[in-house]
Protein backbone atom coordinates (compact mmCIF):
# COMPACT_ATOMS: atom_id res chain seq x y z
CA UNK A 1 0.00 0.00 0.00
CA UNK A 2 2.56 2.71 0.87
CA UNK A 3 4.00 3.09 -2.62
CA UNK A 4 5.89 5.96 -4.16
CA UNK A 5 2.88 7.35 -6.00
CA UNK A 6 0.92 7.50 -2.78
CA UNK A 7 3.64 9.57 -1.12
CA UNK A 8 3.92 11.91 -4.10
CA UNK A 9 0.16 12.45 -4.14
CA UNK A 10 0.22 13.14 -0.42
CA UNK A 11 3.03 15.69 -0.73
CA UNK A 12 1.31 17.54 -3.58
CA UNK A 13 -2.03 17.60 -1.75
CA UNK A 14 -0.39 18.74 1.50
CA UNK A 15 1.36 21.59 -0.33
CA UNK A 16 -1.91 22.65 -1.98
CA UNK A 17 -3.87 22.45 1.29
CA UNK A 18 -1.35 24.40 3.34
CA UNK A 19 -0.82 27.00 0.61
CA UNK A 20 -4.57 27.50 0.24
CA UNK A 21 -5.03 27.73 4.01
CA UNK A 22 -2.23 30.27 4.43
CA UNK A 23 -3.65 32.41 1.64
CA UNK A 24 -7.13 32.09 3.14
CA UNK A 25 -6.07 33.56 6.45
CA UNK A 26 -3.61 36.17 5.18
CA UNK A 27 -4.82 37.65 1.87
CA UNK A 28 -6.38 41.08 2.23
CA UNK A 29 -8.54 40.67 -0.86
CA UNK A 30 -11.51 38.64 0.40
CA UNK A 31 -12.43 37.31 -3.02
CA UNK A 32 -8.97 35.80 -3.45
CA UNK A 33 -9.13 34.47 0.11
CA UNK A 34 -12.38 32.68 -0.74
CA UNK A 35 -10.86 31.16 -3.89
CA UNK A 36 -7.84 29.98 -1.85
CA UNK A 37 -10.28 28.37 0.58
CA UNK A 38 -11.64 26.49 -2.44
CA UNK A 39 -8.12 25.26 -3.21
CA UNK A 40 -7.69 24.02 0.36
CA UNK A 41 -11.10 22.33 0.31
CA UNK A 42 -10.32 20.48 -2.92
CA UNK A 43 -6.99 19.34 -1.43
CA UNK A 44 -8.82 18.03 1.66
CA UNK A 45 -11.16 16.13 -0.66
CA UNK A 46 -8.04 14.58 -2.20
CA UNK A 47 -6.92 13.54 1.29
CA UNK A 48 -10.29 11.86 1.79
CA UNK A 49 -9.71 9.92 -1.44
CA UNK A 50 -6.24 8.87 -0.26
CA UNK A 51 -7.71 7.70 3.04
CA UNK A 52 -10.29 5.54 1.28
CA UNK A 53 -13.34 7.70 1.98
CA UNK A 54 -14.64 8.17 -1.57
CA UNK A 55 -18.17 9.14 -0.63
CA UNK A 56 -16.96 11.84 1.75
CA UNK A 57 -14.55 13.17 -0.89
CA UNK A 58 -17.32 13.71 -3.42
CA UNK A 59 -19.66 15.06 -0.76
CA UNK A 60 -16.94 17.50 0.20
CA UNK A 61 -16.56 18.73 -3.37
CA UNK A 62 -20.32 18.94 -3.95
CA UNK A 63 -21.26 20.62 -0.68
CA UNK A 64 -18.21 22.74 0.07
CA UNK A 65 -16.88 23.79 -3.30
CA UNK A 66 -20.24 23.60 -5.04
CA UNK A 67 -22.53 25.18 -2.47
CA UNK A 68 -20.77 26.83 0.47
CA UNK A 69 -18.06 28.52 -1.57
CA UNK A 70 -20.59 29.87 -4.07
CA UNK A 71 -22.66 31.17 -1.17
CA UNK A 72 -19.64 32.84 0.44
CA UNK A 73 -18.63 34.48 -2.83
CA UNK A 74 -22.17 35.80 -3.22
CA UNK A 75 -21.98 37.10 0.34
CA UNK A 76 -18.69 38.84 -0.40
CA UNK A 77 -20.11 40.47 -3.50
CA UNK A 78 -23.32 41.56 -1.75
CA UNK A 79 -21.38 43.26 1.04
CA UNK A 80 -18.58 44.52 -1.20
CA UNK A 81 -18.98 48.20 -0.40
CA UNK A 82 -18.35 47.69 3.33
CA UNK A 83 -15.08 45.76 3.04
CA UNK A 84 -12.72 48.69 2.81
CA UNK A 85 -12.32 49.96 6.33
CA UNK A 86 -10.35 53.02 5.38
CA UNK A 87 -7.23 50.86 5.22
CA UNK A 88 -5.13 50.10 2.19
CA UNK A 89 -5.98 47.17 -0.02
CA UNK A 90 -3.51 44.72 -1.48
CA UNK A 91 -0.96 42.44 0.06
CA UNK A 92 0.97 44.74 2.33
CA UNK A 93 1.86 43.24 5.70
CA UNK A 94 -0.60 44.02 8.46
CA UNK A 95 -0.01 47.33 10.13
CA UNK A 96 0.17 45.98 13.64
CA UNK A 97 2.11 49.01 14.79
CA UNK A 98 -1.01 51.09 14.07
CA UNK A 99 -3.17 48.76 16.09
CA UNK A 100 -0.72 48.80 18.98
CA UNK A 101 -1.11 52.55 18.91
CA UNK A 102 -4.85 52.10 19.29
CA UNK A 103 -5.98 52.97 15.78
CA UNK A 104 -7.79 49.68 15.49
CA UNK A 105 -11.18 50.97 16.55
CA UNK A 106 -11.19 53.76 13.99
CA UNK A 107 -10.79 51.15 11.32
CA UNK A 108 -7.47 52.06 9.81
CA UNK A 109 -6.28 48.44 9.61
CA UNK A 110 -8.10 45.45 8.22
CA UNK A 111 -6.62 42.76 10.47
CA UNK A 112 -5.66 42.46 14.11
CA UNK A 113 -1.99 42.21 15.13
CA UNK A 114 -0.63 38.84 13.92
CA UNK A 115 2.08 38.28 16.52
CA UNK A 116 0.10 37.09 19.59
CA UNK A 117 -2.25 35.10 17.38
CA UNK A 118 0.76 33.49 15.67
CA UNK A 119 2.30 32.53 18.99
CA UNK A 120 -1.01 31.09 20.19
CA UNK A 121 -1.60 29.01 17.07
CA UNK A 122 1.97 27.70 16.90
CA UNK A 123 1.67 26.69 20.57
CA UNK A 124 -1.60 24.92 19.78
CA UNK A 125 0.07 23.13 16.87
CA UNK A 126 2.90 21.88 19.06
CA UNK A 127 0.40 20.72 21.69
CA UNK A 128 -1.75 18.85 19.15
CA UNK A 129 1.24 17.23 17.47
CA UNK A 130 2.69 16.13 20.80
CA UNK A 131 -0.60 14.50 21.74
CA UNK A 132 -1.06 12.52 18.50
CA UNK A 133 2.54 11.67 17.59
CA UNK A 134 2.51 8.33 19.43
CA UNK A 135 -0.49 6.86 17.59
CA UNK A 136 -0.26 3.64 15.50
CA UNK A 137 2.18 4.18 12.70
CA UNK A 138 1.38 2.21 9.61
CA UNK A 139 -1.65 2.31 7.39
CA UNK A 140 -3.72 -0.84 7.85
CA UNK A 141 -4.46 -2.92 4.77
CA UNK A 142 -6.67 -1.34 2.16
CA UNK A 143 -9.15 -4.16 2.71
CA UNK A 144 -9.71 -2.98 6.25
CA UNK A 145 -10.69 0.54 5.22
CA UNK A 146 -14.34 1.42 5.78
CA UNK A 147 -16.22 1.48 2.49
CA UNK A 148 -19.14 3.51 1.23
CA UNK A 149 -21.41 0.52 1.81
CA UNK A 150 -20.42 0.39 5.47
CA UNK A 151 -20.97 4.14 5.73
CA UNK A 152 -24.46 3.88 4.26
CA UNK A 153 -25.30 0.99 6.53
CA UNK A 154 -24.24 3.00 9.57
CA UNK A 155 -26.39 5.90 8.41
CA UNK A 156 -29.61 3.94 7.96
CA UNK A 157 -29.26 1.44 10.80
CA UNK A 158 -27.46 2.75 13.83
CA UNK A 159 -27.35 6.49 13.21
CA UNK A 160 -30.77 6.96 11.65
CA UNK A 161 -31.95 9.36 14.36
CA UNK A 162 -28.97 11.77 14.02
CA UNK A 163 -29.40 11.58 10.25
CA UNK A 164 -33.03 12.71 10.49
CA UNK A 165 -32.14 15.38 13.05
CA UNK A 166 -29.50 16.74 10.68
CA UNK A 167 -32.07 17.10 7.90
CA UNK A 168 -34.37 18.93 10.32
CA UNK A 169 -31.48 21.21 11.32
CA UNK A 170 -30.76 22.01 7.67
CA UNK A 171 -34.43 22.85 7.07
CA UNK A 172 -34.55 25.13 10.10
CA UNK A 173 -31.28 26.80 9.08
CA UNK A 174 -32.57 27.48 5.56
CA UNK A 175 -35.88 28.95 6.74
CA UNK A 176 -34.16 30.94 9.47
CA UNK A 177 -31.60 32.40 7.11
CA UNK A 178 -34.29 33.43 4.63
CA UNK A 179 -36.14 35.14 7.49
CA UNK A 180 -32.94 36.79 8.73
CA UNK A 181 -31.81 38.11 5.38
CA UNK A 182 -35.18 39.22 4.06
CA UNK A 183 -35.64 42.90 3.37
CA UNK A 184 -38.94 43.22 5.20
CA UNK A 185 -37.89 43.32 8.79
CA UNK A 186 -37.07 46.77 10.08
CA UNK A 187 -35.13 47.24 13.26
CA UNK A 188 -35.36 50.60 14.94
CA UNK A 189 -31.85 51.52 15.88
Amino acid sequence: MPTGGYTIAFVILAALALMGAVWTVTLRNLFRAALSLGLALIAVAGFFLLLGAEFLAFTQILVYVGAILTLIIFGIMLTAKFHQSGGSVGRQPCGWRHSLAGNDITGSVVNRPPLPAGIASVGLFVLLTASTWSLPEHLPDAGLAPTTAALGQQLVVLLVLPFEVISLVILVALIGSVALASEKQRFSR
Binding site: A17, L18, A21, V22, T24, V25, A40, V44, S85, C94, D104, V109, V110, N111, R112, P113, P114, P116, A117, G118, A120, S121, V122, L124, F125, L128
Partner: peptide, 13 residues
Protein backbone atom coordinates in the same frame (compact mmCIF):
# COMPACT_ATOMS: atom_id res chain seq x y z
CA UNK B 1 -5.03 23.43 8.95
CA UNK B 2 -6.67 23.74 12.36
CA UNK B 3 -4.00 26.08 13.69
CA UNK B 4 -4.14 28.22 10.55
CA UNK B 5 -7.89 28.47 11.09
CA UNK B 6 -7.33 29.55 14.69
CA UNK B 7 -4.82 32.12 13.46
CA UNK B 8 -7.38 33.45 10.99
CA UNK B 9 -10.07 33.64 13.66
CA UNK B 10 -7.76 35.60 15.94
CA UNK B 11 -6.40 38.05 13.36
CA UNK B 12 -9.31 38.78 11.04
CA UNK B 13 -11.74 41.57 11.80
Amino acid sequence: LFCLGVFGMLTRR
